[in-house]
Nucleic acid binder design. Structure first.
Ligand code: FES
Ligand code: FES
Lengths: 138, 138
DNA sequence: CTAATTCCTATTAAAATAGTCGGATTTAAA
DNA sequence: TTTAAATCCGACTATTTTAATAGGAATTAG
């Protein structure tokens, strides 16, 4: 699979935004300080989050980022896919008829990875950003 | 997580063994040909599988590997952990009281990754090697 | 003996990930 | 109108991980 610090950072940063929803735009510098992630790296992540319409930005001094939608409408899967592009357990191309190693039939493990894929996907679909923030308050 | 070609190859190779259970010891060369994996790479994998008592070997000409237990008693998790060592979604040390970035409290996403960990673990626990071989026959 | 195999360690090659750098543009406020 | 703080953008570099190879030693059936 592909779950790297980039994906983790993205979720952390989004949770940070969600926790500070009433403070106007949040600058990357603030997130950087709170979450211990370099501003330059956060920039890369937020470009992608913005492309997927998960956050909106305002530029200039006092600028920063805000959630584009309520935290209750943002799924973890949205965030992960925004920055990591894909969860790929399969070795072969999903929609090709060829298996891995360019064989004409699917390999014996194909179904296993496919099911795992769905499993993980469902997990990320189920959890919303709001759930993380709630948990923190407990 | 850590699911790389090494883990995939290991499952493929074990499934290969399970499918050819009645042919005496299977050499890595045979597996190599059938599954398109280099013998030298398979060697590395089988050393680990053997350490975890998933396969047994016989040396010399006509030597090779056999499953140490029936395919119905080998879980995918056994195989994955044998070669990949760990499934780690968490950024922090699981048994440390410190969070990631050496903070004194767990980060806001800690529980999320922990739950995902368990989710994947359960999936791999549930499926047995035997299940793969059966599916192939369908 | 010989050929085929497991066994073992080390090294290299390739790919993916993480993170930096330098600057351009925008904007609120001094 | 200047300044400082911010987003925006593209390219680059460094680091780590993964994949794979190399070169033998030990074992054993035929
Ligand atoms: S993973 Fe799809 S054919 Fe092997
Ligand atoms: S993942 Fe455990 S504290 Fe961040």
């Amino acid at each position: 699979m592909k779950l790297t610090t980039k994906g983790r950072y993205a979720v952390m940063a989004m949770a940070d935004l969600a926790s500070n929803i009433n403070s106007g735009p949040i600058s990357l510098r603030e997130i950087s300080l709170r979450q211990n992630i370099s501003v330059a790296y956060l920039e890369q992540i937020f470009i992608k989050l913005k492309k997927r319409k998960l956050v909106k930005s305002s530029r200039g001094a006092t600028g920063g980022y805000l959630l584009e939608k309520p935290a209750s409408e943002i799924r973890i899967s949205n965030i992960i896919f925004a920055v990591d592009e894909e969860v790929k357990m399969l070795n072969c191309k999903k929609n090709s008829k060829k298996g891995c190693n360019n064989k004409t039939t699917k390999c014996i493990t194909h179904n296993l990875w496919d099911e795992l894929d769905q499993h993980i996907h469902q997990f990320f679909e189920k959890v919303k950003l709001q759930d993380l923030v709630k948990k923190e308050l407990n």
